[in-house]
Every structure is written in structure tokens, then in C-alpha cells.
């Protein structure tokens, strides 16, 4: 063995620094490995159980809470939206009914007004027509009278022109008889 010449060389390492057999089976190093492994495991365990794992658990729980909250809020909002839609539909239906009512009422009102106005106009027209007829009749009567007058006068003159002394009464009678015929 070269351990006399080199202090560093052990039973597991040859003089060139190469491994002798399997380094895994070198009992010289096992104490060192076990010691540092235990130190490492203890450190990792404390880091995990004191800091890392509670923190991650808290983050996950918080996230779960946030998701649950958000879902509940979304559910609420959805219910509200449905409610609002129902209210809207109801308002729409109500408005429609009201509009129908207003339309019907207005139609009836307009019709009544129209009827009244028509009746009034009819009455007025009838009155005017009656008045007109009366005037016409009057005019006609007047005209007849005038014609009689004119015919009498004309006849008197004609008779006079023929040199006959006309009797006013007989002329009138003759004209009247003629006019009647």
C-alpha cells in the first residue's frame, strides 16, 4: 500500500487517486456520510415543517377560499341577473298591458269625440239645410209672385196695346188660371 508515502491515500484510494473496488463499500467514509446526511435531513425537516409546508398549505387554503368565495359571488350575481331579467320581463309585460289599455282608452275617447262632433255637424247641416230650403221656398214664392205681377202687367199692357180696356180683375184671374195650368 502506498499509505506510507501519501497521507491522503487510504485503503479505498490507490496511489493515483483512483478508487479501489467500490467506493460505496468503503467503511472509512461511512461515518462522514452518515453524519452529514443526518445534519442535512434535520435541516431539511425543520425548513419544511417550520416554514415551507405551512406556508404552501396556507397559500393553497387561501386560494381554495378565494375560489370558493368567487364561486359563491358568481352564483349570487347569477341569481341577481336572473332576478333582474324576470323584473325586466315583468316590467315589459306590464308596460305592454298598460300601453294596450291606453290605446284602447284613447281609441274610445277619440271615437266618442268623433261621434259627438259628427252628430253636431249632422245637426248643424240639417239645420242649415232646413234653413236653406226655407229660403229657397221663400225665394220661389217670391219669384212666383213676381212672375204673376210681371205677367199681369205684361198682359194689361198687351191688352191695352190691342186697344181693349182691360179689366184688372179679369186679367188677374186669367193670368192666375194660366199660371196654375
Amino acid at each position: 500500500m502506498a499509505s506510507e508515502t501519501h497521507e491522503t491515500v487510504s485503503a479505498c484510494v490507490d496511489s493515483h487517486g483512483g478508487a479501489v473496488g467500490m467506493p460505496q463499500l468503503c467503511s472509512e467514509w461511512m461515518g462522514n456520510q452518515i453524519f452529514w446526511l443526518v445534519v442535512t435531513l434535520v435541516v431539511i425537516f425543520f425548513i419544511l415543517s417550520r416554514i415551507a409546508l405551512p406556508r404552501i398549505a396556507a397559500v393553497l387554503a387561501e386560494r381554495q377560499g378565494a375560489i370558493t368565495n368567487d364561486l359563491a359571488t358568481a352564483e349570487d350575481l347569477k341569481a341577481k341577473a336572473v332576478e333582474a331579467e324576470e323584473a325586466y320581463n315583468k316590467a315589459l309585460a306590464d308596460a305592454r298591458v298598460e300601453a294596450q289599455n291606453i290605446i284602447a282608452a284613447t281609441k274610445a275617447e277619440i271615437k266618442a269625440e268623433l261621434d259627438e262632433a259628427t252628430a253636431k255637424a249632422d245637426a248643424e247641416i240639417a239645420a242649415k239645410a232646413a234653413e236653406g230650403e226655407k229660403v229657397i221656398a221663400e225665394i220661389r214664392a217670391n219669384a212666383l209672385e213676381s212672375i204673376k205681377e210681371v205677367a199681369k202687367d205684361t198682359t194689361k199692357e198687351l191688352v191695352a196695346a190691342m186697344g181693349v180696356k182691360a179689366d184688372a180683375r179679369s186679367v188677374t184671374a186669367a193670368v192666375n188660371a194660366r199660371l196654375k195650368g
Binding site: E7, A19, Q33, F35
Partner: peptide, 19 residues
């Protein structure tokens, strides 16, 4: 197998328990 050799990080001493 040389990659599996345990050696001191500082210096060339022997590998003790707390090295």
C-alpha cells in the same frame, strides 16, 4: 468508479467523521 470517491473539500487530510 472514481466519481464516487469521498474526499475532503479543503486540503488533503484523511476523511474523519466531521470532515
Amino acid at each position: 468508479m472514481d466519481q464516487f470517491i469521498v474526499k475532503p473539500l479543503f486540503g488533503d487530510g484523511a476523511v474523519g467523521m466531521f470532515t
